[in-house]
Design a protein around this nucleic acid. Structure first.
Length: 230
DNA sequence: TGCCAGGCCGGGT
DNA sequence: ACCCGGCATGGC
């Protein structure tokens, strides 16, 4: 069908209906949690494979230093920065990742987020991906939640939920899943924002690793009806 | 107590 | 182009 060896991804015009079911159940999520776009970027890096509650501790640590800006953090000694990042796990890795991002921002955009977000989306995405420590999900989270670009974010919960509802193979690559949403929804950053936040909300409750079939999800039967037989 | 969390990288097939 | 081990803390 696709000719690329990943046949098990379906085109889903009802994807918007899925969104409305989620919104009706869970309501507005008010994402991204964080104050301002620099905190959004920090959170996107710090939450990699990590519980958000741990990230919050680190963000509180950083706020207390009154150095919560690109230039402020760049002035901190590495050991001090590492100590502040400790609660969010992988703290040595994340210290390096953060330093890589700060260096990129300084060298390419004079340390200015305003300047960075003036770049066209496709170019900025490629540049972010070239930063060591920023992968596809983190780059897209930055673009969507800090830059308000219409870029759909795919994460582990999204993958599991799509698989559970037979909308995609569990092995489908990131870009393919992203395209599934972007091709079947209006190109609207606010919609992508709310949709992804809702997927995480439902995923946290019903679709953790040990229950990848989302067996307890109350939306399951409803959604299967709306999709018809797979 | 063990398992889990809003990934990513580097090295090996 | 995949597959895998490593990275680390805090909560249930």
């Amino acid at each position: 069908m696709s000719g690329h060896g990943y046949p098990a991804v379906f085109s889903v015009p009802q994807l918007y209906h899925f969104y409305r079911c989620l919104f009706a159940h869970f309501g507005a999520q008010h994402w991204w949690p964080g104050r301002g776009r620099f905190e959004v970027i920090l959170g996107a890096i710090l939450t990699q494979n990590t519980n958000w509650a741990n990230v919050e501790k680190t963000l509180r640590n950083l706020r207390r230093t009154s150095a919560l800006s690109p230039r402020g953090l760049a002035r901190l000694p590495r050991t001090e920065l590492a100590r502040l990042l400790r609660p969010s796990g992988y703290f040595r890795q994340k210290t390096r990742k953060l330093e890589h991002f700060l260096r990129f921002l300084r060298q390419c955009y004079q340390g200015s987020l305003s300047q960075m977000f003036r770049a066209p989306t496709a170019r900025l995405r490629a540049e972010l991906l070239a930063v060591n420590g920023i992968g596809e999900e983190t780059a897209d989270s930055i673009l969507l939640y800090a830059g308000r670009r219409p870029v759909f974010v795919i994460d582990a919960y999204t993958r599991r939920i799509l698989h559970r509802h037979r909308l995609a193979s569990s092995a489908a690559p990131y870009r393919r899943l992203q395209k599934l949403f972007e091709d079947n929804l209006p190109r609207d950053a606010q919609l992508y924002n709310e949709y992804h936040a809702l997927l995480v909300a439902v995923g946290k409750r019903y679709c953790h690793r040990r229950a990848p079939d989302c067996a307890a999800c109350p939306l399951g039967p409803e959604l299967e009806r709306s999709y018809g037989p797979a």
